[in-house]
Design a protein around this nucleic acid. Structure first.
Length: 248
RNA sequence: GGCCAGAACUCUGGAU
């Protein structure tokens, strides 16, 4: 059963819902994970109505089934429906809460999001980072920073979120300070810092970051080229373009 | 110990 379930997920990842379905129909036995794979697969492929049918048909639902449906409605922008499902859930875990939190943030209902956040029975690093990200999107950096400082644990994503928040809100110097002290950086962190500089019109600094990057992913090259382009440095932009491995 | 659900960067496309 486990193998079949994996194949189903694989079909959906490759946008082949019909093949996933026919495999599902042929399976000699199914467990809750099989049904859940169908639901989340349909959600991924923007086929919420199919997901819902599966959800209604399945013999028993667990917290993953419910959470996938909440996520589906959020993705469709049907927030009140998502909230309704969320409140109907027989049990919720930290993931369910975080999905709902993300839905409110997506709707710019940041204060509602905060209330939900405060109501969470437990908050892990993902939930906290999501809330921080929401505040950053609204330019409410002080509140974001307070949550960040209070985190019991941070990972590279939490750090990058906070840095990016400062950078996007034109506080690139504060972003840089955090960037320098973060314990480990990945490609996204570097690119976020680079973008912060280009958006503040500090192309030299951006290029300095770019050069110091251990490797230069496509996203960083894109950001760098755009940064040069916006400040009229066409030659430099061209040079970066010519250096990149995969162009698109 | 294994991608059935959740958080971060650039661009593009789609939907509104």
């Amino acid at each position: 059963v486990t193998s079949w379930n994996s194949i189903i997920a694989g079909y959906f990842q490759n946008y082949r819902p019909q093949e996933a379905r026919s495999l599902f129909d042929k399976m000699p036995e199914r467990n809750t994970t099989s049904w859940n794979s169908m639901i989340s697969g349909y959600v991924k492929n923007n086929m919420l109505n199919h997901a819902r049918k599966m959800f209604d048909m399945m013999p028993e639902r667990n917290v993953v089934s419910w959470t996938a449906m909440v996520r589906g409605y959020i993705q469709e922008g049907a927030i009140s429906e998502a909230e309704s499902i969320f409140h109907q859930m027989p049990e919720k875990n930290v993931v369910s809460w975080t999905v709902m939190l993300g839905g409110l943030i997506q709707e710019n209902r940041i204060d509602d999001a905060r209330r939900l956040f405060d109501a969470m029975p437990e908050k892990d690093v993902v939930a906290r980072t999501s809330m921080i990200s929401g505040y950053c999107q609204q330019g409410r950096l002080a509140e974001a920073r307070e949550l960040f400082d209070d985190m019991p644990r941070r990972n590279v994503i939490s750090w990058t979120t906070m840095i990016s928040g400062y950078a996007q809100n034109l506080q690139v110097d504060i972003a840089r300070k955090l960037f320098e002290v973060m314990p480990e950086k990945n490609e996204v962190s570097w690119t976020a810092m680079l973008t912060g500089y280009t958006q503040c019109g500090q192309v030299e600094e951006a290029y300095d970051i770019f050069e110091r990057m251990p490797n230069k992913p496509l996203a960083a090259c894109n950001a760098m080229i755009l940064g040069f382009g916006q400040s009229g440095k066409v030659v430099e932009a061209r040079r970066v373009f010519n250096q990149m491995g995969v162009k698109d």
